[in-house]
């Protein structure tokens, strides 16, 4: 998309960021200030889920997130197509960098280990007896499908992400890979389990 098809403000951002040194540097400073504001706003929004992270750590984290987001925006500037305003596109990087760091920081002292007690919690104890039996059978079938149909790595990712609700950013960091790669593994595992449950006669129970 040419800059002519963009809104005026987005066009101006692109012109400034592609201008000569002085104008470019001034635009980079403005962009960094914007990304830092977004990082701090996102950290404030997520404060309830990151209460164990110290305030000064959060400020450092926001500064790092804004710097990395700035680098990402500048590196990907040529890929901006104008599907949204430039500032919205750029803010997305600040949100991603901030939230990934906050999740990882919140889990830094926690182990990612399969929790076997999850199987007892999954079987709902409230429904009447017949429903209770169906539930227990479905949980058993799911447990069996995990053991029989998933690779070791898929099993680890599925159990951590889907059963124990470990954030996929945390899994990505601990396995030295990307969020997208972990999600792909989770997605493939879910597909295998869905097919196994259908084959086992539980198709009507699946969402």
């Amino acid at each position: 998309m040419s800059t002519a098809a963009l809104d005026l403000e987005s066009s101006q951002w692109l012109r400034d960021l592609n201008a000569n040194d002085a104008e470019r540097n001034e635009a980079i400073e403005r962009l960094h200030a914007l990304l830092l504001r977004v990082a701090r706003a996102e950290a404030a929004r997520r404060r309830a889920s990151t209460s164990q992270v110290r305030t000064e750590e959060i400020d450092d984290l926001c500064t790092q997130a804004a710097s990395d987001a700035l680098m990402a925006v500048l590196a990907k500037l040529d890929t901006y197509r104008g599907a949204a305003r430039f500032t919205t596109w750029a803010c997305k990087f600040a949100i991603f960098e901030t939230s990934s760091r906050l999740r990882r920081q919140a889990w830094r002292d926690r182990n990612v280990e399969p929790d076997e007690s999850i199987w007892n919690r999954l079987a709902d104890t409230k429904p009447h007896a017949l429903r209770q039996i169906e539930n227990e059978q479905l949980v058993s079938a799911l447990h069996r499908a995990i053991d029989e149909h998933l690779t070791e790595r898929q099993r680890l990712v599925f159990r951590s992400a889907a059963l124990d609700e470990v954030p996929i950013d945390v899994l990505a960091e601990r396995h030295g890979t990307s969020r997208g790669a972990i999600y792909k593994m989770l997605h493939d595992a879910r597909g295998k389990l869905r097919r196994a449950l259908i084959d086992a006669g539980y198709g009507d129970h699946l969402p």
Partner: peptide, 12 residues
């Protein structure tokens, strides 16, 4: 993770 990020961008 993506849902939380989307909620964050919407809030901004």
């Amino acid at each position: 993770a993506c849902r939380e990020d989307t909620e964050g961008l919407l809030a901004i």
